[in-house]
Design a protein around this nucleic acid. Structure first.
Length: 557
RNA sequence: GGUCCCUUCGUCUAUCGGUUAGGACGCGAGAUUUUCAAUCUUGAAAGACGGGUUCGACUCCCGUAGGGACCGCCA
C-alpha cells in the first residue's frame, strides 16, 4: 500500500483518527500523535506507551497495575517523549557473527548510521555472540571489515554480548525474585510431545508450562530447568513502530519465552533487552524479521519497568525473483561486492534507496543522505535487489571519482580479482603511471572496477598482441596496407600526444579518401587486439611512442 | 496451519481524496560519434481483484487473491 508518509502531518492525522491502526510518524515527535488513541492505552509505568497490557491481569505479576494511573489529559507522556526525541539518539548495529556481513545487514547498518549521524547521535556496534556453537571467529572480522569498507563507523570498541552473560543472568534472577519469571522443568521430550500433539490436532502451538503456577516446592531436586518469563495471558502487547505503525499482538498468542537456558546462559531476547537498556539505546532499527521479537522484548521491558526504545523495523531485501535473498542471488558477503568492483559510495547510494526515498532524488552524496534520511521515508514493502541499477549507480560514481582515488581502489582489489595477481606483478613506477594516465578514458566506459581493469588490459598486453576475432576481421589486407602507409607519418610525429596524433591520422584518412573509421578501427585492433577500446589516440598516447609504433608495425604490411 | 506485515510501469520508487499517475534503472528509437561508452532527445510501460465511504478513491474502510516474515533451551 502506498501509504501517505511524505509529511508527518498527514500521517499524524491518520494515526490519530480512531479508525487507524497506525501511529507512526517519525518526522514529527511521536508524542504529538499519541494524544487520543494511544494515550488511553498507554502503560502509565513509563513515559512511553509502547507496551499495553490492556485490561487488568489475573496474576499478581501484573505489570501495569503496579503503577499509578495517569490521566490521559496529563501531558507527561508528551513531555517524556519530547525529552527523548530531543536527546541525541543512540542506535546500535547488532549482527550475529555466524557469517559474513550480508546485504540486508549492510543496509540495516547504513540506516542506523544515517539516523545517528543526522541527529548528532552515535552508533554502537554489538556482536550478538551468545550462541557459542554457531560462533565463527572469522565472522566478526568479516563484519568489521565490511563496515569499514562501507565507511560506516561506530563509536567506541565493538562489544561482545557474550561478555555480559553474567549481567543477563542477574536480570533473569531478578525477574524470578520479583515474580515475573519462573523455573520451568519441562523436559525436551515433554516439549516435543506437546508439539506433536498440536500438529496432530492442527492447532497452533502455544506452550503453556504447568510450572508457571506450580508451587516451586514441588520442583524435582537436581533436575535441570529453564527460566521462563511469566508473560501476561490477557490483553495486548502493542509495538508503536516507526515503520510498521501500530502493531498489536494478543497476549494469548504469545507464550512464556525462555530467558535463561538450562545451562544458565541467557537467550537472545533477554540479552538484547538487557544490553539495549544498559547501552542506553534510544532507537532500535533492524529488520522486520524481528518484529515478533519486539513484542516479546516489550514484555521483558515491562517486567523490568524499563523504558522501551523507539522501534523501527525495516522491510527485508529480496532476491531478483522476489523470494528471500539466497546465496544464489545477492546474499553475498559485502566483500563480494567489493571484489566485483563496486564502490562503497555507490553501494551506499543503492542501498539507501532500497526501501527509503526522498522525493525523486536518486543520486545523493553521503552528506545529503545524512541530512535527508528519516524513518518516515521508509516503506513497508520488501524490495528486490537489482544489479542493473547498482551497476548504473556504480558507473556514475566511478566517473565522479578522482583518478588517483580510483587508482587506489584498483590496487586495493587487485589481489582478490581474477587475473589481478598478474597485473600486480607487472606494476612498477612506469606501468603505474601508464595506468593512471589511462584512467580518464577508461572510467568513462566502466560500470565496475573489474570492467575498468578489463579495459586496461591493452596496457599489460605483450607483443605480439593476441587478437580477438573481431580484431582479426578488422585487420584485413586492405587495413594492413593502410597501417603500412600511415606508419611513417606517425613515426615522424613531433609530439606523441593525442591531439597531434589525431591530426596526423585525420590528414592521412582525408588524403587517402578513407573514412576515419576505416583507419581508426584497424589502428585500434593493432594497438589493443580488440575492436572496442578507449579512443585510439588516447591509447597511443598512453602506450608511448615506441610501444605504440611497434604494435602498429607488427600488423602493418 | 496460527500470528503479523505487504501489493503503483519488468525493477526501485513519487503521490497531502481532485495530477494527462511523476522520476530513476532496464528496454526500444533517434541525435552525436573512430569502436564502445558517456551525453542529449524520444517511445512503450503501472494503481492485483471485488465491494463500500465520498461530489470525487492509487490514496480511507471491508473482503478476495497473491507474496513475505515469524512461530527453537538460534540470533
Amino acid at each position: 500500500m502506498p501509504s501517505p508518509r511524505s509529511t508527518g502531518i498527514h500521517k499524524n492525522q491518520r494515526s490519530c483518527s480512531a479508525s487507524s491502526r497506525r501511529t507512526s510518524g517519525a518526522k514529527t515527535p511521536p508524542a504529538l500523535c499519541r494524544s487520543p488513541s494511544s494515550m488511553a492505552l498507554a502503560s502509565p509505568v513509563r513515559g512511553r506507551p509502547t507496551v499495553d497490557f490492556g485490561r487488568p491481569l489475573p496474576t499478581p505479576s501484573s505489570y501495569a497495575t503496579s503503577a499509578p494511573y495517569l490521566h490521559p489529559s496529563s501531558n507527561r507522556h508528551q513531555m517524556t517523549d519530547k525529552t527523548r526525541s530531543d536527546r541525541a539518539p543512540i542506535v546500535r548495529f547488532a549482527p550475529s557473527p555466524t557469517g559474513f556481513l550480508h546485504i540486508g545487514g549492510a543496509r540495516t547498518a547504513l540506516f542506523n548510521w544515517l539516523y545517528a549521524k543526522g541527529r548528532g547521535g552515535k552508533m554502537l556496534l554489538r556482536i550478538e555472540d551468545t550462541d557459542r556453537e554457531r560462533l565463527t571467529p572469522a565472522a566478526v572480522d568479516a563484519i568489521l571489515d565490511g563496515l569499514k569498507w562501507l565507511e560506516l563507523d561506530w563509536t567506541g570498541e565493538h562489544v561482545s554480548q557474550f561478555a555480559q552473560a553474567k549481567r543477563h543472568r542477574e536480570v533473569a534472577e531478578e525477574l524470578l525474585a520479583r515474580g515475573h519469571a519462573y523455573r520451568c522443568y519441562l523436559t525436551t521430550d515433554e516439549l516435543d510431545a506437546m508439539r506433536k500433539a498440536a500438529e496432530a490436532e492442527k492447532r497452533p502451538l502455544t506452550i503453556r508450562s504447568p510450572w508457571r503456577d506450580r508451587d516451586p516446592g514441588e520442583a524435582p531436586k537436581g533436575q535441570p530447568y529453564v527460566i521462563r518469563l511469566k508473560a501476561p495471558r490477557e490483553g495486548e502487547t502493542v509495538i508503536d513502530d516507526q515503520v510498521q505503525g501500530r502493531v498489536v499482538f494478543a497476549n494469548k498468542e504469545l507464550d512464556d519465552l525462555i530467558i535463561l537456558r538450562s545451562d544458565g546462559t541467557p537467550t537472545y531476547n533477554l540479552a538484547v533487552v538487557v544490553d539495549d537498556h544498559d547501552m542506553e539505546i534510544t532507537h532500535v532499527i533492524r529488520g522486520v524479521d524481528h518484529l515478533t521479537n519486539a513484542a516479546r522484548q516489550a514484555q521483558i521491558y515491562a517486567a523490568m519497568g524499563w523504558e522501551v526504545p523507539v522501534f523501527a523495523h525495516v522491510p527485508l531485501i529480496h532476491g531478483p525473483d522476489g523470494a528471500k535473498l539466497s546465496k544464489r542471488h545477492g546474499a553475498l558477503g559485502i566483500e563480494a561486492y567489493r571484489e566485483m568492483g563496486y564502490l562503497p559510495a555507490a553501494l551506499r547510494n543503492y542501498l539507501v534507496r532500497l526501501g527509503w526515498s526522498h522525493g525523486n532524488d536518486e543520486i545523493m552524496s553521503t552528506s545529503q543522505m545524512v541530512d535527508w534520511f528519516d524513518l518516515s521515508g521508509i516503506g513497508r514493502s520488501a524490495a528486490r535487489f537489482d544489479f542493473a541499477k547498482l551497476e548504473d549507480l556504480n558507473g556514475h560514481y566511478i566517473r565522479a571519482t578522482s583518478d588517483l582515488d580510483l587508482m587506489k581502489r584498483l590496487e586495493d582489489i587487485l589481489p582478490f580479482v581474477p587475473g589481478g595477481a598478474k597485473i600486480v606483478a607487472r606494476l612498477d613506477a612506469n606501468t603505474r603511471a601508464q595506468l593512471l594516465a589511462a584512467i580518464p578514458s577508461l572510467k568513462e566506459r566502466a560500470k565496475t572496477l573489474l570492467e575498468l581493469l578489463d579495459g586496461a588490459g591493452y596496457l599489460f598486453a605483450e607483443r605480439p598482441l593476441a587478437l580477438d576475432d573481431k580484431a582479426v576481421k578488422l585487420l584485413d589486407a586492405e587495413a594492413r596496407g593502410r597501417l603500412g602507409a600511415l606508419l611513417p607519418k606517425l613515426e615522424a610525429a613531433d609530439h606523441w600526444l593525442a591531439p597531434s596524433l589525431e591530426e596526423i591520422v585525420r590528414t592521412y584518412a582525408e588524403a587517402s579518401g578513407a573514412k576515419l573509421g576505416k583507419v581508426a578501427q584497424p589502428l585500434r585492433a593493432a594497438l589493443t587486439g580488440r575492436a572496442v577500446s578507449p579512443p585510439v589516440f588516447d591509447v597511443m598516447a598512453v602506450l608511448g611512442r615506441d610501444e605504440a609504433l611497434a604494435r602498429i608495425r607488427d600488423q602493418a604490411s
